[in-house]
């Protein structure tokens, strides 16, 4: 049995006719734009029915003024096949708006998503509904801004200094 991109995408399209918004081919990579509200069920289908057992990466992009809606959450899912041809990787993109940056968590599908979603929350302020422990992972816990947002000045060290001074005070107590 052979299994390739076209088959995966067409299976997805028949299963979720309303929610597969667009597909793109570029240099042998397939990107599927999906409805962000259905992300959990699409990912569940990919894993349980099509054997995409491995979430290789989960990240986000802030397009600020370039695109609307502003954010895209990007999922790289991998399928390990017996045959080389069946060893494929698909990219899912879900657009979410600036006003309410929330998307369903996929931790219950791939446990790897736990820290990856925390990192996205830390850097972009995108919330993952249903995440078991959504708090900052890289920046200090009392840190305010979301540093990878394009409207954040990368050289702004004020918030870091505040967290640092607070940590010092806690040490002396």
């Amino acid at each position: 049995m052979s299994f390739d991109f076209e088959q995966a995408v067409s299976l997805l399209k028949t299963e979720f006719p309303q929610d597969i918004l667009d597909t793109k081919e570029y240099r042998g990579e397939t990107t599927v734009f999906v409805n962000s509200e259905k992300i959990a069920s699409i990912c569940g289908y990919l894993k349980n029915n099509l054997d995409f057992t491995f979430l290789a990466d989960l990240t986000a992009v802030d397009y600020l003024e370039i695109k609307s809606p502003r954010y895209e959450v990007v999922y790289h899912v991998h399928r390990f096949g017996v045959d080389c041809e069946e060893n494929i990787r698909i990219r899912l993109k879900a657009k979410i708006s600036d006003k309410e940056p929330t998307i369903d968590s996929v931790v219950s599908i791939w446990a790897t998503a736990d820290w990856l979603e925390r990192e996205i929350y830390d850097m972009f302020g995108i919330e993952f509904a249903g995440h078991p422990d959504l708090r900052r992972i890289l920046m200090p816990e009392d840190y305010g801004p979301f540093p990878l947002r394009k409207d954040f000045d990368v050289r702004n060290r004020e918030a870091s200094k505040e967290s640092f001074e607070k940590a010092l005070e806690e040490d002396t107590d």
Binding site: M139, P140, R157, S160, K161, S163, F164, L168, D171
Partner: peptide, 13 residues
């Protein structure tokens, strides 16, 4: 980093 700085200061102290 600032997150490490408080630890560094504490070790120094």
């Amino acid at each position: 980093t600032y997150k490490m700085a408080s630890v560094c200061r504490r070790i120094y102290d």
